[in-house]
């Protein structure tokens, strides 16, 4: 491996960018393909599939065997609202390997007692999200259904083209949310990326059950479709 390739891998990791190292196992020849350059690559389909799975592995191309070292940023989930559902979601999100952050400016909710071992930030989303820098490998679950807390987070999530954006609230609540985001200049296609009502339709009732349905939806968004924002996204589940 050339030192420049090794440096590129390490740099991409620090900067939270996806990257693939393609190795011709027989000859030892290697090249680096940054995530954003995959679409134009001769092995586009294979590289895209590898990136979506997030796993390194072997592929064949034109009779040759290549090993793909796939490096994707750790997937983050940002939860807005230190509510009951978030308390149930925190431990299972951790088990699923998600890097979880909970944000809620209401200090009565955002207490370490309620959220042991969680990266909990008692601040307004608009104050802390610029520092967190959401990206494609970041998901958002908004649980406060309070526009002044959820909306700034939804705006940031839409702008960052996050792989998952879900928002709690009834259809009526969501209709008003759509109106507000439209007034802010977001296109209907962008707003349609918000999954509302949030969560897979498994008939969840209790906070813990809703947490499971949301985690399922996050995993579905991560694994079932390309992390491409130009791919049409199926609207969120019902009920």
């Amino acid at each position: 491996m050339k030192l420049e390739h090794l440096s590129a891998l390490n740099k991409a990791r620090v900067e939270r960018r996806a990257i693939i190292l393609v190795t011709d196992v027989a000859s030892g020849e290697q090249r680096i393909v940054p995530g954003e350059a995959i679409a134009g690559d001769v092995m586009a389909d294979q590289l895209d599939a590898a990136l979506r799975s997030g796993k390194s592995g072997n592929v064949e191309h034109e009779g040759k065997s290549f090993f793909l070292t796939v490096q994707t940023p750790p997937v983050r989930l940002i939860v807005i609202g230190a509510v009951h559902i978030s308390q149930a979601l925190a431990p299972i999100a951790k088990v699923a390997g998600l890097d979880l952050t909970i944000i809620d400016p209401r200090t009565a909710f955002a207490t370490p007692d309620r959220f042991p071992d969680v990266n909990l930030i008692a601040e307004w989303p608009q104050n802390v999200l610029p520092g967190i820098k959401p990206d494609r490998y970041t998901g958002f679950a908004c649980f406060t259904h309070d526009p002044k807390i959820d909306d700034p987070a939804l705006e940031a999530a839409l702008r960052a083209e996050c792989f998952y954006i879900g928002a709690l609230g009834s259809r009526k609540t969501h209709a008003k949310r759509v109106e507000r985001l439209t007034a802010l200049g977001f296109a209907p296609e962008a707003i349609a990326r918000i999954r509302a009502p949030i969560g897979l339709d498994i008939g969840a009732v209790s906070p813990a059950e809703i947490a499971v349905s949301v985690l399922g939806e996050v995993i579905q968004a991560l694994r079932k479709k390309p992390l491409r924002t130009d791919t049409p996204v199926k609207a969120g589940a019902a009920a």
Binding site: L6, N10, T69
Partner: peptide, 19 residues
């Protein structure tokens, strides 16, 4: 692991990566 490999190489050491 990969960061260490880069550090070692930049320090002038011979380095191999096994995958």
């Amino acid at each position: 692991i990969l960061a260490r490999a880069e550090d070692w190489r930049k320090a002038g050491k011979g380095v191999a990566i096994a995958t």
